[in-house]
Design a protein around this nucleic acid. Structure first.
Length: 483
RNA sequence: GGCCCCGUGGUCAAGUGGUUAAGACACUGCCCUUUCACGGCAGUUACAUGGGUUCGAACCCCGUCGGGGUCACCA
């Protein structure tokens, strides 16, 4: 029990679930579960300005959809609750005051104006320690007078602080770089700096897993553990997730790079299991295997911290698309139909041959949202340009296609058995008769009946679904266009 | 700007002193009795750079350059 690995995911309820956050949650979960440990969810809502209504629900649902089971959290409770920081205010106050009475922290009465002018004077500098050594009587008097205050941590003025990160190794920084950080804000809420340390300790967190943007502030947190006399946790900092900019540079993954929230990605038809699988590989890779397709359970088996990378990883929508296609292809036809439902109109869902259409689509689609285009042309012929008939590989031109369609039309008119095999045989014969490649005939027909360059299936498959009437009508339309 | 981190092909990424420097995505070509896709095969593309250390360096050390992060009463 005492040696159990305990990790936590501690998001702020600020709206939506960024894919980078989900990746952090996934790694934290994996680290705990790979070891039979415990995964805690804690809501860090100490910034009342940034609170967004409903975001806790989004967090809960995202974790559920992604398959990251929570052992302790706001929903399921646990021995170390509450798991929402705004409900733990007395705890932070108590611990902050303890630090003050131990001489490790102090009351600071500096107001916003003074801090701002400080900032202007020395760019990049921190707090100047103005209240660090106020006489005790003065502190008492100000407290009694009700002057607003914060509590700051006393940083050592000299020396160096070192900690060991399980991914990045030893990180050392001069203590003079560290400023006396605020622990308790004037509104009585703790800062992240303080609250997460207290909570991680109280909740028994053994591995602190978070993004590497915390790498350089972690010495301050380590010092906080030291000040309390608590053993420092294991630190696992994760490489940053980057996005590719249009000019080829990269920067922290954000909205300008496209959809970056889990729910947006799902809305575009990326399967949760594909997203999870893909982001697992952003900053980590398994040992001794080239396998890339893993279920959550399999990841759990194989995941280990020393497979985590140090360098930032660029989020590649192309690769995600590939993962997604692989997962779509693994779905049973029934399951695929179920997941596709949200992307179909009522009319399309009611169409008798929709099952057949979906079976044509499933093997060749990347994201479910692409279903729209792949399905709608069955119901309405899109307007298309005659240039579509020109195909280099099959050596077709608008002229040759006109001739092909005219010929084909005559033969098809009298065809009784309107099914794929019969259609295919007829068209192939026609090609031989005209002494051209079968591909050329297929190309012309496929364009005429679909109006698209890319379709879910070949010419004859499409015609079978479309039926004789519609097929002939569309071919006529094609002939009309070409004349 | 100070501090911290990172630097293998367009992207993800193996690799821990001796390798023909894996693999995947993307890209290109070919094949798969029909485009696209799926599948198969083949191919183009990489150790930022300069010095060391060593018989030998992608791997170790130092500098340079490049990129990123961080310096809040945000997390």
């Amino acid at each position: 029990m005492d040696n159990m690995t305990v990790t936590r995911f501690a998001p702020s309820p600020t709206g939506y679930m960024h894919i980078g956050n989900l990746r952090t949650a996934l790694y934290a979960w994996l680290i705990a579960k790979a070891d039979g440990g415990k995964f805690i969810l804690r809501i860090e809502d100490t910034d009342r300005q940034r609170l967004v209504e409903g975001s806790v629900k989004v967090i809960l649902e995202t974790l559920k959809t992604a398959g990251l089971t929570v052992d302790e959290g706001p929903e399921q409770g646990g021995p170390n609750g509450p798991y929402i920081q705004s409900e733990r205010l007395p705890i932070y106050k108590e611990y902050a005051e303890k630090l003050v009475s131990d001489g490790k922290a102090y009351y600071c009465f500096c107001d916003k104006e003074r801090l701002e002018s400080l900032h202007e004077q020395q760019a990049g500098g921190g707090y100047d320690g103005h209240c660090r050594d106020l006489p005790e009587e003065e502190v008492r008097a100000k407290l009694a007078a009700g002057i607003p205050y914060v509590i700051r941590q006393k940083m050592p003025l000299t020396g160096r602080t070192t900690y060991t990160d399980m991914v990045f190794g030893d990180i050392a920084v001069d203590n003079k770089e560290l400023t006396d950080q605020i622990l308790l804000k004037a509104d009585n809420y703790p800062t992240y700096n303080f609250a997460h340390v207290v909570d991680d300790y109280l909740m028994g967190v053994t591995h602190v897993v978070r993004g590497s943007e915390y790498l350089s502030s972690t010495p301050k947190y380590a010092l906080l553990y030291d000040a309390f006399g608590w053993p420092r946790p294991n630190y696992v900092h994760l490489p940053l997730l980057m996005g590719m900019n249009e000019d080829g540079t990269v920067s922290k993954l954000s909205k300008r790079h496209g959809a970056v929230s889990f729910q947006d990605l799902c809305g575009m038809g990326y399967l949760p299991e594909a997203i999870v699988n893909y982001i697992a590989f952003l900053g980590w890779s398994p040992k001794d295997t080239n396998k890339e397709l893993f279920t959550l359970n399999e990841l759990q088996e194989i995941f280990s911290i020393d497979g985590i990378n140090k360098s930032p990883a660029v989020f590649d929508y192309n690769k995600l698309l590939w993962f997604n296609g692989e997962y779509i292809r693994m779905l049973s036809p029934e399951e695929f139909a179920r997941r596709a439902e949200g992307f179909l109109t009522e009319e399309e869902k009611a169409f008798p041959k929709i099952g057949k259409i979906l079976s044509l689509i499933q093997p060749r689609i990347g994201a479910l949202a692409d279903i729209r285009e792949a399905v709608s042309f069955f119901f309405e012929l899109p307007d298309y340009d005659t240039d579509l008939y020109i195909n280099k590989k099959n050596k077709t031109t608008t002229e040759s296609c006109l001739k092909i369609l005219t010929e084909v039309r005559k033969t098809l008119e009298s065809l009784e058995d309107w099914n794929n095999d019969a259609l295919y045989a007829v068209l192939k014969d026609k090609a031989a008769e005209m002494d051209i490649k079968a591909g050329a005939v297929m190309w012309a027909v496929r364009v005429a009946v679909s109006g698209l360059a890319v379709t879910p299936g070949g010419a004859t498959e499409l015609m079978e679904v479309l039926g004789k009437d519609t097929s002939l009508k569309r071919i006529d339309a094609g002939i009309g266009k070409l004349q």
